[in-house]
Amino acid sequence: MLIRATRAVLASMLDEAGVSSRAISTADVRTTASTFRQFAPLPTEDAAPPEEDGDGILAEFGSHDFRGEREFSTSLTRQFTEIGDKDAMWQLGCAFYWAPQAATDVLESGHMWPLGRALDEFFDKLVSLPGWAWALGDVQVPHGLVITLDRT
């Protein structure tokens, strides 16, 4: 798979898993994390290898106003660097959004990189991030799911 095709591949995998950005349920957060776990090790032909920081995963959570209004979000990002061009970086992001509330305001924000961990260990530790633990707890239906592929 090419970097430019990663969004379509992930979207297809999510569709097959029953996740739709038009009708989101609380269970979709867990299904999306599980699907991203399956997607994360798929090889890319034009990305530098992980040991050269060419293919990595990032988990984040927090309350921000990036989209014009304050929201709580959780996201998983797969970051690629093109072979032979360290300045050509791509980020495939998959983010859920919720209206802010007292329960999410106390979570602040945080992130986690694999930092030498195997992908399975990274995804096993995902539930230990406070924001992800809340999101995976089926507490509230997200009001949005956005999948993006951007060159930075």
Score class of each variant (00 low, 15 high):
Leu145Arg: 09
Thr31Asp: 10
Phe80Thr: 06
Ala47Thr: 04
Leu58Ile: 06
Asp150Val: 11
Phe61Asn: 07
Glu82Pro: 00
Pro41Lys: 05
Leu119Met: 01
Trp132Ile: 14
Gly54Ser: 04
Thr31Gly: 00
Phe61Lys: 06
Met89Lys: 14
Ala23His: 13
Ala5Tyr: 11
Thr31Ile: 15
Gly56Glu: 12
Asp150Cys: 05
Ala135Glu: 06
Ser20Thr: 15
Thr148Ala: 04
His64Phe: 14
Leu92Gly: 06
Leu107Phe: 12
Glu60Ser: 13
Gly131Met: 02
Asp65Tyr: 05
Lys86Ile: 15
Gly56Val: 02
Ile24Leu: 15
Gly84Pro: 13
Gln91Pro: 00
Ala33Ser: 13
Leu126Val: 04
Thr81Gly: 01
Gly131Arg: 05
Gly84Trp: 07
Leu2Lys: 13
Leu76Ser: 05
Ala8Asn: 11
Glu69Trp: 00
Thr104Pro: 03
Ala103Val: 11
Val146Cys: 01
Pro130Lys: 12
Ser12Asp: 09
Val141Gly: 02
Phe72Asn: 14
Ala102Ile: 02
Lys125Glu: 15
Ile57His: 08
Asp65Leu: 00
Thr152Cys: 06
Arg117Phe: 04
Ala99Glu: 15
Arg30Ser: 14
Ser63Ala: 10
Val127Gly: 13
Trp113Pro: 00
Gly131Thr: 03
Asp46Met: 08
Phe96Cys: 07
Phe122Glu: 03
Gln101Lys: 08
Leu129Met: 15
Gln38Ala: 12
Leu149Thr: 11
Asp105Thr: 10
Thr44Gly: 00
Gly84Cys: 12
Glu71Val: 11
Thr104Asp: 06
Arg70Gln: 13
Phe36Glu: 01
Val146Tyr: 13
Met13Cys: 00
Glu52Tyr: 03
Pro41Ile: 07
Leu42Thr: 06
Val29Leu: 03
Asp105Gly: 00
Pro142Val: 06
Phe36Asn: 10
Glu52Thr: 03
Ser128Thr: 15
Ser73Tyr: 12
Val139Met: 07
Gln91Asp: 11
Phe66Cys: 04
Arg151Ser: 05
Glu69Ala: 15
Asp87His: 08
Ala40Trp: 08
Leu149Pro: 11
Ala11Trp: 00
Glu16Asp: 14
Ser21Tyr: 05
Arg117Leu: 13
Leu10Asp: 09
Phe96Arg: 08
Phe96Ser: 04
Leu76Gly: 03
Arg70Thr: 08
Phe122Thr: 07
Glu60Trp: 05
Ala59Glu: 10
Glu82Thr: 09
Ala8His: 08
Thr44Phe: 03
Ala33Phe: 12
Ala8Cys: 00
Phe80Asn: 05
Leu126Cys: 01
Phe36Ile: 09
Ala47Phe: 02
Gly84Asn: 09
Leu107Asn: 12
Gly93His: 08
Thr31Leu: 14
Leu42Ala: 01
Phe66Ala: 11
Trp132Gln: 03
Ala27His: 14
Ser25Gly: 15
Ser34Trp: 01
Ala8Lys: 10
